[in-house]
Design a protein around this nucleic acid. Structure first.
Lengths: 113, 113
DNA sequence: TTTATAATTCAATACATGTTGAACTATTTT
DNA sequence: AAAATAGTTCAACATGTATTGAATTATAAA
């Protein structure tokens, strides 16, 4: 979970992901939009690909060009995992096991209040 | 968005958040559970508090003790923001503006296909 | 009043990683 | 065959931040 979050917790990568969702695709276009050198885009795209969030596909006519796209399945899975972990309903009430509160609770048990 | 994600993208902080959701509360208890020194726990808790995800409250009887808890409102808001940004429905179809594909699309427009 | 406790703050270090520039690969064009 | 293009890979550097240990604060107990 932390690994996946780290990948998307980087500002530039978030922007790249955003642009990919908007339909932007190739390295050069991302570079123009984000004012970043191509090699840096490559670096971030590699991380996004390693995380399975982004797919790459070469052009059928001119294979020098690579088109990137967001992996919809991975995004769905990410959403599910995030929602499961950060679900507010998971918050349990206080369970004092140390400090003065723990003693009070313990005495309640003893006196059967 | 990236700032908030960075805070929760740290493994130890994720664990702390998890334990807080389970009802664990004070620094010492977290330290025992995670095998970490108290000052490090403090450091991570400070980041979580700065992000508004965690609240702190001193014991009424013995104010040396501090009880931490997850801010439910912040968690709800975080969930909403995450879902909005990473919503798979946001993924738009390809919009080729460079590369051979762009030329093909352009010629389609010209020939009114 | 002295000692112990819970927690924080501070300075220094270690480590991870984003950034930079150059070299490199593969393909297409001239 | 040579030059150009899209993209990647590599090594060095810069930066942020988690970690460590010691010092500090504030309160409670002896």
């Amino acid at each position: 979970m932390a690994d996946r979050l780290k990948v998307i917790a980087e500002p530039k990568r978030l922007l790249i992901l955003h642009l990919l969702m908007e339909g932007v695709q190739c390295n050069c276009e991302l570079g123009d939009a984000l004012q970043m050198p191509a090699n840096l885009i490559s670096h971030h795209l590699a991380k996004l690909r390693a995380a399975g969030l982004v797919d790459a596909e070469r052009d059928a006519v001119d294979s020098r060009w690579v088109y990137y796209s967001v992996n919809r399945t991975a995004l769905v899975e990410l959403n599910a995992a995030f929602e499961a972990f950060f679900d507010p309903a998971r918050i349990k009430p206080r369970r004092p096991t140390c400090g003065p509160q723990a003693l009070i609770v313990a005495s309640d048990v003893v006196t059967s209040k």
